[in-house]
Protein backbone atom coordinates (compact mmCIF):
# COMPACT_ATOMS: atom_id res chain seq x y z
CA UNK A 1 0.00 0.00 0.00
CA UNK A 2 2.98 2.31 -0.01
CA UNK A 3 3.75 4.75 -2.73
CA UNK A 4 6.14 3.16 -5.13
CA UNK A 5 8.65 5.60 -6.45
CA UNK A 6 8.44 6.03 -10.20
CA UNK A 7 10.93 8.75 -10.70
CA UNK A 8 14.71 8.34 -10.63
CA UNK A 9 15.84 11.71 -9.41
CA UNK A 10 15.32 13.13 -5.98
CA UNK A 11 15.66 16.86 -5.58
CA UNK A 12 16.61 18.04 -2.14
CA UNK A 13 15.10 21.12 -0.59
CA UNK A 14 18.57 22.67 -0.52
CA UNK A 15 19.00 22.20 -4.27
CA UNK A 16 15.61 23.77 -4.87
CA UNK A 17 16.73 26.83 -2.90
CA UNK A 18 14.56 25.87 0.04
CA UNK A 19 15.07 25.06 3.66
CA UNK A 20 12.99 22.39 5.34
CA UNK A 21 11.57 22.33 8.82
CA UNK A 22 12.71 19.04 10.37
CA UNK A 23 9.91 19.17 12.92
CA UNK A 24 6.85 19.56 10.68
CA UNK A 25 8.35 18.86 7.20
CA UNK A 26 7.22 22.20 5.75
CA UNK A 27 9.39 23.88 3.09
CA UNK A 28 10.40 27.57 3.27
CA UNK A 29 12.54 29.92 1.16
CA UNK A 30 16.17 29.48 2.17
CA UNK A 31 16.28 32.97 3.70
CA UNK A 32 13.74 32.08 6.39
CA UNK A 33 15.16 31.38 9.83
CA UNK A 34 12.05 30.20 11.63
CA UNK A 35 9.25 27.86 10.51
CA UNK A 36 6.02 29.77 10.04
CA UNK A 37 3.96 26.72 10.88
CA UNK A 38 5.52 25.24 14.02
CA UNK A 39 8.10 27.84 15.04
CA UNK A 40 11.15 25.56 14.81
CA UNK A 41 14.53 27.07 13.91
CA UNK A 42 15.40 26.43 10.27
CA UNK A 43 18.88 25.34 9.26
CA UNK A 44 19.56 23.80 5.87
CA UNK A 45 22.37 21.59 7.19
CA UNK A 46 23.11 21.89 10.84
CA UNK A 47 26.93 21.88 10.72
CA UNK A 48 27.17 23.13 14.30
CA UNK A 49 25.22 20.09 15.40
CA UNK A 50 28.43 18.03 15.43
CA UNK A 51 29.91 20.21 18.17
CA UNK A 52 26.83 19.63 20.30
CA UNK A 53 26.90 15.90 19.49
CA UNK A 54 30.51 15.63 20.67
CA UNK A 55 30.05 17.79 23.79
CA UNK A 56 27.09 15.70 24.95
CA UNK A 57 28.84 12.47 23.93
CA UNK A 58 31.84 13.31 26.13
CA UNK A 59 29.69 14.16 29.16
CA UNK A 60 27.75 10.92 28.66
CA UNK A 61 30.95 8.91 28.38
CA UNK A 62 32.49 10.48 31.49
CA UNK A 63 29.34 9.62 33.46
CA UNK A 64 29.48 6.03 32.23
CA UNK A 65 32.83 5.42 34.00
CA UNK A 66 31.71 6.00 37.64
CA UNK A 67 28.46 4.24 36.70
CA UNK A 68 30.49 1.06 36.34
CA UNK A 69 32.89 1.59 39.27
CA UNK A 70 30.46 2.50 42.06
CA UNK A 71 27.87 0.05 43.37
CA UNK A 72 24.44 0.10 41.77
CA UNK A 73 22.66 -1.81 44.55
CA UNK A 74 23.27 -2.34 48.26
CA UNK A 75 21.54 -5.45 49.55
CA UNK A 76 21.31 -6.02 53.32
CA UNK A 77 20.22 -9.52 54.23
CA UNK A 78 20.24 -10.19 57.98
CA UNK A 79 23.78 -9.22 58.97
CA UNK A 80 25.29 -9.42 55.55
CA UNK A 81 25.73 -6.40 53.26
CA UNK A 82 26.27 -6.94 49.55
CA UNK A 83 27.27 -4.19 47.19
CA UNK A 84 27.05 -4.95 43.52
CA UNK A 85 28.06 -3.01 40.46
CA UNK A 86 26.17 -3.21 37.16
CA UNK A 87 28.33 -6.02 35.83
CA UNK A 88 28.66 -7.71 39.24
CA UNK A 89 24.88 -7.78 39.59
CA UNK A 90 24.48 -9.40 36.20
CA UNK A 91 27.17 -11.99 36.98
CA UNK A 92 25.34 -12.83 40.25
CA UNK A 93 22.11 -13.33 38.31
CA UNK A 94 23.87 -15.62 35.86
CA UNK A 95 25.24 -17.68 38.80
CA UNK A 96 21.73 -18.02 40.20
CA UNK A 97 20.71 -19.58 36.91
CA UNK A 98 18.57 -16.72 35.57
CA UNK A 99 20.57 -16.36 32.41
CA UNK A 100 17.79 -14.64 30.46
CA UNK A 101 17.50 -11.78 32.95
CA UNK A 102 21.28 -11.51 33.22
CA UNK A 103 21.38 -11.22 29.44
CA UNK A 104 18.77 -8.42 29.43
CA UNK A 105 20.74 -6.45 32.05
CA UNK A 106 24.08 -6.95 30.26
CA UNK A 107 22.47 -6.00 26.96
CA UNK A 108 20.72 -2.89 28.30
CA UNK A 109 23.50 -1.66 30.58
CA UNK A 110 26.68 -2.63 28.75
CA UNK A 111 26.07 -3.60 25.12
CA UNK A 112 23.59 -0.80 24.26
CA UNK A 113 25.55 2.03 25.95
CA UNK A 114 28.92 0.96 24.50
CA UNK A 115 27.34 0.30 21.10
CA UNK A 116 25.78 3.74 21.25
CA UNK A 117 29.04 5.49 22.09
CA UNK A 118 30.68 3.71 19.19
CA UNK A 119 27.80 4.34 16.75
CA UNK A 120 27.46 8.06 17.49
CA UNK A 121 31.24 8.55 17.29
CA UNK A 122 31.38 6.60 14.02
CA UNK A 123 28.55 8.66 12.51
CA UNK A 124 30.07 11.93 13.68
CA UNK A 125 33.55 11.11 12.35
CA UNK A 126 32.59 9.64 8.96
CA UNK A 127 29.49 11.67 8.53
CA UNK A 128 29.23 11.97 4.74
CA UNK A 129 28.43 8.90 2.74
CA UNK A 130 29.94 8.73 -0.73
CA UNK A 131 27.62 6.12 -2.16
CA UNK A 132 23.99 5.19 -1.66
CA UNK A 133 24.53 1.91 0.15
CA UNK A 134 26.79 3.52 2.74
CA UNK A 135 24.22 6.26 3.31
CA UNK A 136 21.53 3.67 3.95
CA UNK A 137 23.77 1.79 6.38
CA UNK A 138 24.52 5.01 8.26
CA UNK A 139 20.89 5.99 8.39
CA UNK A 140 20.02 2.54 9.70
CA UNK A 141 22.65 2.95 12.43
CA UNK A 142 21.25 6.38 13.31
CA UNK A 143 17.71 5.03 13.54
CA UNK A 144 18.87 2.15 15.74
CA UNK A 145 20.62 4.54 18.12
CA UNK A 146 17.53 6.75 18.29
CA UNK A 147 15.20 3.83 18.84
CA UNK A 148 17.16 1.58 21.15
CA UNK A 149 19.10 4.11 23.26
CA UNK A 150 16.21 4.83 25.63
CA UNK A 151 15.99 1.18 26.64
CA UNK A 152 19.23 1.50 28.64
CA UNK A 153 17.09 3.18 31.30
CA UNK A 154 15.73 -0.22 32.24
CA UNK A 155 18.44 -0.86 34.84
CA UNK A 156 17.57 2.39 36.62
CA UNK A 157 13.93 1.32 36.78
CA UNK A 158 14.90 -2.11 38.11
CA UNK A 159 16.91 -0.44 40.88
CA UNK A 160 14.00 1.92 41.62
CA UNK A 161 11.49 -0.92 41.91
CA UNK A 162 13.80 -3.11 44.00
CA UNK A 163 14.71 -0.27 46.38
CA UNK A 164 11.08 0.66 46.93
CA UNK A 165 9.83 -2.90 47.22
CA UNK A 166 12.49 -4.72 49.20
CA UNK A 167 12.16 -2.89 52.52
CA UNK A 168 11.64 -5.78 54.95
CA UNK A 169 13.12 -4.44 58.17
CA UNK A 170 15.51 -6.85 59.82
CA UNK A 171 15.17 -9.32 57.00
CA UNK A 172 16.27 -7.74 53.76
CA UNK A 173 16.58 -4.22 52.44
CA UNK A 174 17.82 -2.91 49.11
CA UNK A 175 19.06 0.65 48.62
CA UNK A 176 20.35 2.29 45.45
CA UNK A 177 24.05 3.06 45.09
CA UNK A 178 25.69 6.14 43.54
CA UNK A 179 26.17 4.32 40.21
CA UNK A 180 22.44 4.67 39.55
CA UNK A 181 22.81 8.45 39.44
CA UNK A 182 25.76 8.40 37.04
CA UNK A 183 24.23 5.73 34.85
CA UNK A 184 20.98 7.69 34.45
CA UNK A 185 22.96 10.82 33.56
CA UNK A 186 24.98 8.85 31.04
CA UNK A 187 21.82 7.56 29.33
CA UNK A 188 20.25 11.03 29.30
CA UNK A 189 23.34 12.71 27.82
CA UNK A 190 23.83 10.08 25.11
CA UNK A 191 20.14 10.40 24.18
CA UNK A 192 20.63 14.19 23.89
CA UNK A 193 23.78 13.59 21.87
CA UNK A 194 21.94 11.35 19.39
CA UNK A 195 19.10 13.87 19.16
CA UNK A 196 21.57 16.66 18.33
CA UNK A 197 22.76 14.74 15.26
CA UNK A 198 21.43 16.03 11.93
CA UNK A 199 20.95 12.95 9.69
CA UNK A 200 20.60 15.13 6.58
CA UNK A 201 24.37 15.57 6.63
CA UNK A 202 24.78 11.88 5.78
CA UNK A 203 23.46 12.55 2.27
CA UNK A 204 25.54 15.65 1.59
CA UNK A 205 28.36 13.99 -0.30
CA UNK A 206 25.99 11.98 -2.43
CA UNK A 207 25.47 12.90 -6.08
CA UNK A 208 21.73 12.62 -6.59
CA UNK A 209 22.06 11.23 -10.09
CA UNK A 210 23.38 7.99 -8.66
CA UNK A 211 20.21 7.52 -6.72
CA UNK A 212 18.67 4.23 -7.71
CA UNK A 213 14.93 4.07 -8.38
CA UNK A 214 12.95 2.85 -5.46
CA UNK A 215 11.34 -0.57 -5.51
CA UNK A 216 9.82 -0.47 -2.05
Amino acid sequence: MEFAGTSKKVITAREAGLVACTRCNRAWPISHSRCGRCGAKLVSRDAKSLQRVWALWIVGFICYIPANIYPMLRTRQLFQVDESTIIGGAVDLAHHGTMGIAAIIIFASVVIPLGKFWAIAFLAVTIRATEGAAAHRKLWLYEMVEYIGRWSMIDIFVVAILSALVQLRGLATITPGPAAFFFALSVIFTMLSAQAFDPRMIWNGLPNEDEAPDHA
Binding site: V10, I11, T12, A13, R14, A16, L18, A20, C21, T22, R23, N25, R26, A27, W28, P29, S44, R45, A135, L139, P199, R200, I202, W203
Partner: peptide
Protein backbone atom coordinates in the same frame (compact mmCIF):
# COMPACT_ATOMS: atom_id res chain seq x y z
CA UNK B 1 9.64 20.30 -10.52
CA UNK B 2 9.80 23.99 -11.25
CA UNK B 3 8.09 26.56 -9.09
CA UNK B 4 5.21 25.49 -6.97
CA UNK B 5 3.60 26.96 -3.87
CA UNK B 6 5.62 26.00 -0.84
CA UNK B 7 2.67 24.65 1.10
CA UNK B 8 2.26 22.05 -1.62
CA UNK B 9 5.61 20.54 -0.74
CA UNK B 10 6.74 18.13 1.90
CA UNK B 11 10.39 17.60 2.78
CA UNK B 12 11.87 14.50 4.37
CA UNK B 13 13.42 15.47 7.73
CA UNK B 14 16.04 12.71 7.49
CA UNK B 15 17.46 13.25 4.01
CA UNK B 16 16.09 16.61 2.81
CA UNK B 17 14.39 15.12 -0.29
CA UNK B 18 11.53 17.40 -1.37
Amino acid sequence: TGNMPLDELIVCPQCDAA
